[in-house]
Amino acid sequence: MNPAAPAPPDPAAAISVRGLVVAFGDKRVLDGLDLDVRRGEVMGFVGPSGSGKSVLTRTILGLVPRRSGEILVLGRDIARISRPEAAAVERRLGVLFQQGALFSGLTVAQNVEAPMREHLRLSPRLRGELARLKLALAGLPDDAADKYPAELSGGMVKRAALARALALDPEILFLDEPTAGLDPIGAGEFDDLIATLRESLGLTVFMVTHDLDSLFAICDRVAALGSGRVIAVGPPRELAASGDAWLSAYFRGKRGRAAAQARTG
């Protein structure tokens, strides 16, 4: 069932993980996980709550220490290279946190400008223009730019956070539950937005989601996590047909059937 052979990690892949073990105390959250995310694909991650989806994301981003294993992000292992080199890799990643994680003391436009201000030498004019371009790409109205995060609705916070994640034109975009907390119409629009951006910007997308509609709508492949490993990986339709008990419950439950039907029809 495990799709990854015990091969060395693939430097050509956007993300390549081999034998990853992450544990908190005695509890092994990830236990020998193998994974490849190809460049330019949208990879969805599913799994029951507590199966380590968020831990996997945070470990790949270097926010959680690993006990053993290899992680290549854009061909480099962040834990094994010097801090400046790691920072150079991190600059090529964009992250949309579940709660947005916008800086509450800055306006939306300043939030988007923040990474540009720190990493690039741009004239203030171009920086301002690009920030507004990113906001427009993320589907925010022009007047949202000068608001503070506390003044935005949940959907707008997600869009603003997406604009910030896109600020440095990342190669890999990490999305942690991008559509959680959005109404179905907003969630659908967000899916379309991700699909469009991925098309025009050539992004690789790493998406943790519980949203079946998102999975069917935009994911090229889906990886299912269970007992600390990837238990299945493949196009959403293939996974939906798999025999695994949890997967069939997940995809063929009432909600899964509806989502799959909507896409077939």
Partner: peptide, 13 residues
């Protein structure tokens, strides 16, 4: 071409 289309210049007030 797609990228240029997506990032088409527009004046922001």
């Amino acid at each position: 071409a797609e990228l240029i289309e997506a990032a088409r210049f527009r004046a922001f007030a």
